[in-house]
């Protein structure tokens, strides 16, 4: 490794430089480093939050074993699987499609781009409340629309099985603006010469889109897949403020179980769930990176 050269100016300012970094580093230590170390170690201990964590060498996976016995755990894994699948296909698909459409710069594209962002700048708690009203059995927007065709329709979306799973899904399914924005940024960066060359070779509009644009956007689509799955792993408000995981455990999620464990003073269990969320996130990232060959140069 090449040695970094420090100029006279740099050297003279070393103390002040570290002084400037200090507050940020303290925040980092308090709210990232120490929490992560704590989660990593206490996930393997019994800990009620009052007494000190107890590590039992004969049974280091005590919390994980308890997790599998918890009634909400398997449903939350199952939900996470299906929601991730829907996220990486439909959700990212919608985002990518809108990105490609906006890149055509049809009349009004800036308006659509601006408006699409609005659900993302609203508190997710408020958005969950709005959806609770949209899916309300009596005066909800959705049942109102359906009743214009079928006047006797009355599904209580968030509180009936299997409607609840889909009600939760619809609170996030269409709102793929992040995917749209990053795909759009990638599309804008494609050199015009590539398109011109393809035209000379006689490629039609569709062919250009499928054979040039789509493969060149694989980094942003891959990023979109990672982001959309990690938001499913951490999804909390959409569940906690609507169905609360019910009916039964139909819509249970890991984050809801985590908060429940903290409220039950089972801190070891809470951190076992947290560790699981963290590991899932890393795995998804590595896997998608591989599948989309995101580290290979695009051009």
């Amino acid at each position: 490794m090449a040695r970094v050269q420090y100029s006279k100016l740099d050297r003279r300012h070393f103390p002040k430089i570290y002084l400037f970094l200090l507050p940020t580093l303290i925040l980092f230590a308090m709210f990232y480093l120490w929490p992560i170390i704590q989660v990593l170690f206490t996930a393997f201990t019994k800990w009620d939050g009052f007494n000190s964590p107890k590590f039992d060498i004969s049974n280091p996976f005590v919390n994980f074993l308890q997790l599998f016995k918890m009634r909400g755990f398997m449903p939350s894994l199952k939900n996470l699987f299906w929601w991730s699948l829907i996220a990486m296909t439909l959700h990212v698909g919608i985002g990518t499609l809108v990105g490609f459409l906006l890149a055509q710069k049809l009349k009004g594209w800036k308006f659509v781009r601006a408006v699409f962002m609005i659900p993302n700048v609203i508190s997710s708690a408020a958005w969950a409340m709005i959806y609770r009203f949209i899916f309300n059995k009596d005066f909800g927007l959705l049942n109102g629309i359906i009743r214009t065709v079928n006047p006797n329709f009355a599904v209580n979306w968030f509180y009936e099985s299997p409607a609840a799973f889909w009600a939760i899904t619809f609170t996030w399914l269409f709102y793929a603006v992040i995917v749209t924005l990053i795909v759009l940024a990638d599309l804008m960066a494609i050199p015009q010469e590539l398109h011109e060359a393809a035209e000379i070779d006689g490629a039609s509009g569709w062919k250009k889109t499928l054979k040039i644009d789509l493969p060149l956007c694989r980094n942003s689509i891959g990023t979109g897949v990672i982001l959309s799955i990690t938001s499913r792993i951490a999804m909390y408000e959409n569940i906690a403020l609507t169905s609360r995981g019910g009916p039964g455990n139909d819509t249970m999620g890991l984050a809801v179980l985590l908060v429940k464990s903290i409220n039950d003073y089972n801190y070891g269990l809470a951190n076992a769930i947290a560790l699981m969320m963290f590991v899932f996130g890393i795995l998804v990232m590595l896997l998608i990176n591989r599948v989309f060959r995101m580290n290979d140069p695009v051009y």
């Binding site: 970094l21 980092f28 990232y32 929490p35 908060v259 903290i262 969320m277 996130g281």
Partner: peptide, 29 residues
């Protein structure tokens, strides 16, 4: 400026983006 551990510090601070906020719930609580 250039200073010792600059890259390490920058990487540590930006890698925080990869940590989902909810995983730190209990320690922060």
């Amino acid at each position: 400026y250039n200073f010792p551990f600059k890259n390490l510090i920058y990487v540590l601070l930006t890698v925080t983006l990869l940590v989902p906020g909810h995983t730190k719930t209990q320690p922060i609580f």
